[in-house]
Simulated assay, not measured.
Amino acid sequence: MKDANLVSTALQLRWPWLQRSEVSKPWTSFHIRFNPQVLALFREACCSVVGDGRSTLFWTDNWIDGRSIESFAPVVFATVGRRTCHRRLVVDALVGSAWIHDISGPLNAQGMAEFLQLADTLVTMALVPGQEDVLRWRWSTSGVYFAKSAFLHFFEDRPTFPPWSQIWRCSAPLKCRI
């Protein structure tokens, strides 16, 4: 039997996927509140391939080698305002190195090391004008969201019960199996 909570979570992941991947649809303008666990799973399962940088969030989306700046430089990320984190796009941040102005507050030694590493990484990034950003689903081979791929990912590391086939392939008559 399938776990109803996991099925529900796999299906709830579809809404943030649709909001980010099909921007021309009417539901993208709706402000839908998502469960924080669903959003965390969505961020883990998606990565952006940056084109022009107009639909990828600079601080929170996974776009630098499949990682977000939040995970790449956590000390630097901690100094950025919450509102800025969820609104700053890659195109806005990279033009004129505007992302540096988002950092408010002092950085310790680890923060400075992260800042310098981030600056070196961002120097090599180039935007491609006219090419839209592509959202990819990590848990499927095609890169497109499927509820089945999310559901199967939940069971990836769980132990299996090999004798299940013997239970369901019983050769007794149907009236005896029930």
Rank of each mutant, 00 (worst) to 15 (best):
T84K: 03
C85D: 01
A73K: 03
R88P: 01
G96Q: 09
V95S: 07
V80A: 01
C85V: 04
R87F: 02
G81A: 15
S97H: 02
R87C: 06
I100G: 03
R87M: 02
H86I: 11
S68P: 11
S68I: 12
R83V: 11
G66T: 10
V95P: 03
W99C: 03
I103A: 08
R83S: 12
R88T: 07
D102S: 04
R82L: 14
D102G: 02
V91S: 10
R88D: 02
H86P: 00
H86R: 14
A78I: 10
I69C: 12
S68A: 15
G81T: 06
I69F: 09
I103K: 00
A78D: 09
C85H: 14
V90N: 01
V75P: 13
R87P: 04
L94P: 07
I69Q: 08
A93I: 04
S68D: 13
G66E: 07
T79M: 14
S68M: 11
H86A: 14
R87H: 08
I103N: 02
T84P: 02
H101E: 12
G81C: 13
D92S: 11
V76F: 03
A98Y: 03
S71E: 15
H86D: 12
V91C: 13
V91Q: 11
V90F: 05
V90I: 10
V90L: 05
I100M: 11
H86T: 12
G81M: 11
V76G: 05
V76A: 09
W99I: 02
F77K: 04
A73E: 01
S97R: 04
E70G: 09
S68Y: 08
A78E: 13
R67K: 15
D92V: 07
R87Y: 00
R88G: 06
V76H: 02
F72R: 08
R82S: 15
I103L: 06
H101G: 10
L89K: 13
I103H: 05
F77C: 09
P74H: 03
T84Y: 01
